Each structure stands twice: as structure tokens, then as C-alpha cells.
Amino acid sequence: MRTRSGPRVAVATALAAVLALGTAGCVAIEESGADPSPSSGGGGGNATAQLGELTVASAGSMKGYSRSRFPHWRSTGKNCDVRDTVLERDGRDIKHSGCNVVGGSWESVYDGRSFSDPSDVDIDHMVPLANAWRSGADEWDDKKRGDFANDLDRPQLFAVSASSNRAKGDQDPSQWKPPSQSYWCTYAEDWVAVKHHWELSVTSAEKDTLADMLKGC
């Protein structure tokens, strides 16, 4: 029996092809969302590669160090600053007075504690200022140190519990880790991402600890 191959078949074939392309296009659009959070190391494998590129050196001297050598928090206009920006980014149900953050809810990624008063929340530098000083920032000018202290583009600034921030102090991961072990992978990735971007060194103990933490990613 002869099979029909007239215009209807051709049109149907063409329509099927168009629908297939349209579906593929929708999937591509739906999957290409932007993440508003700061860039991290990009996964354990990438962070491990970045860690391997860091200079290993003994911790430098604290001579000449002062937090004032890392000017922060920079103004973001209308009496607001980078601290307000981080509080708003990391919190929920934010309340403002002008553009100052005066209320909301925050959960500290370091220890899982929750807060509703911004005065109970600290803004932690993933790589502490004093650690950066000992890792090469002592050779920067104050403008560059200010860029580091106010860096919103890397995973450098986080709203966390005051107690965890103060327990951490200026210690590296070989000396202090977040109480929430489930956060260790992200913590190591973020630490490496910051040090890699700013070309800061790591101690041998710091590097070994980060490598172990990244194995869990």
C-alpha cells in the first residue's frame, strides 16, 4: 500500500520540530537563574584547585596592625553603610528606619542561632582583618584594605551571632571552625575563594585543614 507524503505530513513534521525547539528554549531559560548571594569557591573541586594555587608561608608579623587600617563600614548613602547592606541581604522580614536596618530575623550560619534584634548580630569577615594582615595585606595601601574589608562581591561578609564571631576572632580554620559541622564545606570553599581572589597566603596547617574540610564537599 502506498504511504501518503503530502503537505499535511510535511506541516505536521515541521510543527513538531518547532515545538521541540520551543520546549528546549523554555528549559534553558528556567534553569539559568542568577544567585543573588556572593560568589563562593564554586564547589569542592574548584576550591581544591584554588587552594593548590595559594602561596604557603608562615604567618607574618602583626607589627603596625590596626583595624583602622581596614576602613569599614563604608557609607552606602542616606546614613547607611555596608553593615546595613549585609543585614538586609542575610535577614528576613527586614524593618527599616530610613534605610537603616532596625529589625528583622536572622539565622547565624555558624551555629544555627536565631535573632530578631540587629544589635545581637555581628557582621563577620570570612577572612578576618588581622589574618589578612598576616597573610599579605600588610603590604597593601589603606584604600585596598578598605576594599577588602567592605567586599560584597566575594563570600567575605556574613551576618552571624556575636558569640560565634567573637569566638572565631582572627583565627584560621586550623584554629577555629563553625560549631555547625554541616557548614564546614561551605566555610572552607568561601575561605579559599576570598584568599584566592585577594592573593593572600595560607600557613601549612591552614592549607592542610582546608584540604580536609573540602574532602567533605
Rank of each mutant, 00 (worst) to 15 (best):
T76Y: 05
K78S: 15
S32W: 05
T76S: 09
G44A: 14
K63Y: 03
P38H: 04
V102W: 01
M62F: 09
R74C: 08
G45C: 00
V27L: 15
T23V: 15
R4A: 13
S105F: 03
E107T: 15
V27G: 11
A10E: 10
A49G: 07
A14K: 00
G98M: 04
V18Q: 00
A59F: 00
E107P: 01
A57L: 12
D81Q: 11
G98S: 07
R92I: 07
D35I: 02
S32N: 13
V86D: 02
T48Q: 08
Q50R: 14
C80N: 08
M62A: 12
C80Y: 07
V82Q: 05
A20W: 03
S75W: 08
A20E: 01
G44F: 00
A14Y: 03
R67T: 08
V86Y: 00
A16H: 03
G77H: 12
S105V: 11
A28L: 13
A16Y: 04
A20C: 10
R69I: 00
A10T: 11
D111E: 09
T3W: 09
S97V: 04
V18P: 01
P38Q: 02
E31C: 10
T55R: 12
S61F: 02
H72S: 10
C99T: 10
R74K: 12
G43T: 02
H72W: 05
C80D: 06
D90G: 03
T13R: 13
L15P: 03
G103M: 13
T85K: 11
T55Y: 00
V101H: 04
R92F: 02
C99R: 14
W106A: 07
G43L: 05
G22M: 08
E53H: 09
R113G: 11
S58C: 01
R92E: 15
T48R: 15
S39P: 02
C80H: 10
G91M: 09
W73Y: 14
V109Y: 10
D93G: 14
L87V: 09
G25F: 05
